[in-house]
Design a protein around this nucleic acid. Structure first.
Lengths: 291, 291
DNA sequence: GATTATAGCTGACTAAAGTCAGCCATATGG
DNA sequence: CCATATGGCTGACTTTAGTCAGCTATAATC
């Protein structure tokens, strides 16, 4: 292991520890001990079962109980027995508690905005942060079939369109690019798969079918920060598996030679180049694979 | 301010807070309170004056005093009056203390190595971390004239050579590329300027002179992670100022058209293109500026 | 050499965090 | 229905962190 690389990571660790400390200090300025603030935030974020709060904050049962009592005494939360299991309890924010939670949220947002404002190259910094977030995450990347019209899908598709536009140096418009109608990207005809890490989308791919044995791969996208991790191959495999499950026998796709990483991937995954099969303006390369 | 950007920064914050917490937990496993561990580490890192420890760790005089006492009781440190001011004290590690400090260092190194190991694309992650480190740092980038043969200069020059090699797609060898002899990059003939953030080098530039009124800019480099921050312009200005101070009236430089960002910078900073003035194999563009 | 400032230590205190045994109410499995 | 497990609460406690006034020794200033 290269000592210079270790040093760089440790410098990073030092820098972010300072930042984490500063955020906690700003929380303390609200006059409440950090432990209580953390519990309030956990509840605001949706951890309402007392057991969940305990596990996410790694608190002792006695300690959490007392912190809940102190928040209750402040009038910030209310607790009641869990409807399914009356031994367990759920905590909810009162109106006052919601207001206080919102203030903590604002404090966090402000710190984030400050970091962004004092930096000259925001997109680059954000991508760097995404890379680090992905690298530090202990969660697995999960692949999930979701609705093509959902928020998560839309986020992915917008990123896809922006990037393709920049790559092909045109104003890329999903509508003009033969936007498939919703039913084609849905069971039983097709599907839409996202890869996500927690609630952060890191990739997507669509299978567009019409009920026949032939379907098309569309909207394959990997978040810039998630590249170089072998995710594209896993995405394609997930799409092929989903297509097979739908009874599809042949998959096709179109792409542009500018996207050379993608082209290389198709070639090494058993796709063969075929003749143009549509008249879309953007693609100039066409592939097929028998499942 | 874009809420999506804020969300990305906050996701980042959450991820690193977990990592910071995990490192602190691993420190606690040594059976010593965090405060004491921090003091021990500060001493090991070279903060030996009690006043320095206090300012770097932001501790109250009473609290620090007690922490020092507890480390002394463990036999990890020794304190003695400061030789110049016998009111002040200096703390030094005993052999046992050094061993314990080394263990903390190993713990930190191991965590860093773990992050690196579970990531598939180490160079990209490291650059991302550098970008974040620079962005979060509250320190200013300082420009400093240093010895061309010093360690810091060598670090910069190696990075410069590696990168130029990759950029020009050849095995770039500083020696072959007309490596200037040391005296030409030193006062009174020339100089070598580094930009650094703490002890992290983020850029360098050399002025190579021979005592005449004509000198040459060499080895201009900006760390990848520090790009897009307007640093190149500041580096060049620093080099020109240093040259002026040395009584130099005309500066020249050679460059390669592949380095288009650099070429553009020279053009906007008042440099004019001139004819080839050497026979080096790498450059294909030549500039001059009257100071 | 008297006055004032500075560095660090000690005692006395408070607040926050964390631990643990024992308790009660409820759920679960035979 | 009984035995056992589970979820959370309370009381009693310890440790860690932090604050502050007052003290001593030394240094700096005039």
């Amino acid at each position: 292991m290269d000592q210079d690389q270790i040093t760089r990571i440790r410098n990073f660790g030092r820098a972010v520890a300072v930042e984490v400390g500063a955020l906690e200090d700003s929380f303390l300025d609200r006059g409440r001990p950090l432990g209580a603030a953390r519990v309030l935030n956990a509840i605001g974020l949706g951890y309402q079962n007392v057991a969940d709060i305990r596990s996410v904050l790694k608190l002792d049962t006695g300690l959490l109980s007392r912190l809940l009592r102190s928040l209750e005494a402040e009038g910030l939360i209310e607790t009641s027995p869990h409807p399914q299991d009356r031994r367990a309890r759920v905590a909810t924010l009162t109106r006052k508690g919601q207001a206080e939670f919102d203030i903590y949220e604002t404090l966090s947002d402000e710190r984030a905005a400050q970091i962004l404002n004092r930096h000259k190259n925001a997109p680059r910094l954000l991508e760097a942060m995404d890379i680090v977030t992905i690298a530090l995450s202990r969660e697995e990347i999960v692949f999930e079939e979701i609705d093509y019209a959902s928020d998560l899908a839309t986020t992915c598709l917008n990123a896809y369109a922006m990037e393709l536009g920049a790559r092909l140096n045109v104003e890329f418009d999903l509508k003009k690019a033969g936007d498939p109608d919703l039913s084609q990207m849905k069971h039983p005809h097709g599907t839409f798969v996202v890869a996500r890490l927690g609630d952060m989308p890191v990739g997507c791919v669509g299978v567009k079918g019409n009920g026949g044995q032939l379907a098309e791969i569309k909207r394959m996208w990997i978040a810039p920060a998630a590249r170089g991790l072998g995710l594209a191959r896993r995405m394609m495999t997930a799409a092929e598996d989903a297509a097979r499950d739908l009874g599809i026998e042949v998959l096709r796709l179109d792409t542009n030679s500018t996207l050379f990483e993608a082209v290389k991937l198709y070639q090494t995954m058993g796709w063969t180049q075929i003749d143009r099969f549509n008249n879309d303006p953007y693609p100039d390369l066409f592939f097929e694979k028998h499942l």
